[in-house]
Design a protein around this nucleic acid. Structure first.
Lengths: 139, 139
DNA sequence: TTTTACTGTAACGAATATTATTACAGTAAG
DNA sequence: CTTACTGTAATAATATTCGTTACAGTAAAA
C-alpha cells in the first residue's frame, strides 16, 4: 500500500485536532517522521480536492476545510492511491491463451477488488480515526 | 499489489489447462513473460501449501494437485502476499498523540481491509478464472 | 553409468520505485 | 525588506523488485 495514503490520513488527523490554527508542514512532518516537502506534496492533493485549505507566508500553513465526518478513507484512497491494487503485469505471451487473456481478466478482478475495498474504507471517516487515536491514548 | 500473486494465478490457470501432463517452469515462464527461476520460486510456495506437486528430472515439472474449485484467490493471496495491504510506516514521533498512536490504529484498519478483501477474493476459484480466460478467447 | 532435462535455492546484479533533500520562486505578515 | 511560510521541480539516496547466473539434487533414458 502506497504510503501517501497513510501520510494523508496522518496529516488530516493532526489537522483535525488543531481546528483553530494553521499547522505548518514542518510540524506535521515531525509528527509523521518524514520530510516536510513530502507532506507538502501530499497535502497539495488534498487541497486540490477541497479537504483542506492552505495559506502561504508567515503564520501560514494548512487547516481542515470540512467537517470531520465529511471525509472518509475511501475519499483519501482515491486521491492518493487509486489503482494501487492493480498489479503491474509484464506483457505476457500473446500466442498463449492464458498469456493473452490473463491480463484483462486480472484487471477486472482487481477493479472489483478495489470497489469492494472502497465499501470498507467508506466506513471510516476522519472523525472516527480521531476517536480511535484518542482511545489508544488512554491505555 | 505484489506480482507474485498474479504470477501464481497465471501459473495455476495454465496448469489447470494441462491437467494430464507436467508443465515445466520454462513453459510457464514463457507464457507469463518472466524468468523461469521466478516461476520456480512462486511455485515452490504453492507446492508447500499442497496446491500443486512437482517432479524433478527429465519429464518433470509441475501439475495441479487439487480440483479447480478447491483453490480460490484468497488462498493464493494469503500464500503469496499476506500483509501486502499494510503500509510500511516509518516510525513517527512518539511525543505526539497522533504520531504515537496512528501506527496501531492504521494497522487495525488495514487488517480489517485485508479481511474484507478476502471475502471478495474467496468468490473466485481457479475454475472461475479459467472460465473467464476462455470467455475472453471467443471474442 | 553417463548424459540429459528438469526442480530447488542461494547469491548477486540490474532495473525500478520510493523517499529525502536541495533549490528556489511565490506569497503574506510584521 | 526581512522573516516564515507554501509550491514545485530537479536530483540524490535508498529500498524494493526482478532477472540472471551458478550449482546441487533428482530422475528418466540412452
Amino acid at each position: 500500500m502506497n504510503s501517501d495514503f497513510t501520510l494523508a490520513i496522518h496529516s488530516l488527523t493532526l489537522l483535525a485536532l488543531q481546528p483553530d490554527r494553521m499547522s505548518t508542514s514542518e510540524y506535521i512532518a515531525e509528527s509523521a517522521g518524514v520530510h516536510p516537502v513530502r507532506i507538502r506534496k501530499v497535502l497539495s492533493l488534498l487541497k486540490k480536492n477541497g479537504f483542506i485549505t492552505s495559506k502561504e507566508g508567515t503564520g501560514g500553513g494548512f487547516i481542515f476545510a470540512l467537517d470531520l465526518d465529511q471525509v472518509n478513507l475511501w475519499d483519501i484512497y482515491q486521491i492518493t492511491s487509486e489503482g494501487a491494487l492493480q498489479p503491474k503485469c509484464t506483457d505476457s505471451n500473446g500466442q498463449c491463451i492464458v498469456g493473452a487473456n490473463m491480463k484483462s481478466v486480472l484487471f477486472s478482478i482487481f477493479m472489483g477488488a478495489e470497489e469492494h475495498l472502497g465499501e470498507y474504507l467508506k466506513e471510516y471517516t476522519i472523525k472516527e480515526v480521531v476517536e480511535l487515536v484518542k482511545q489508544k491514548e488512554t491505555f
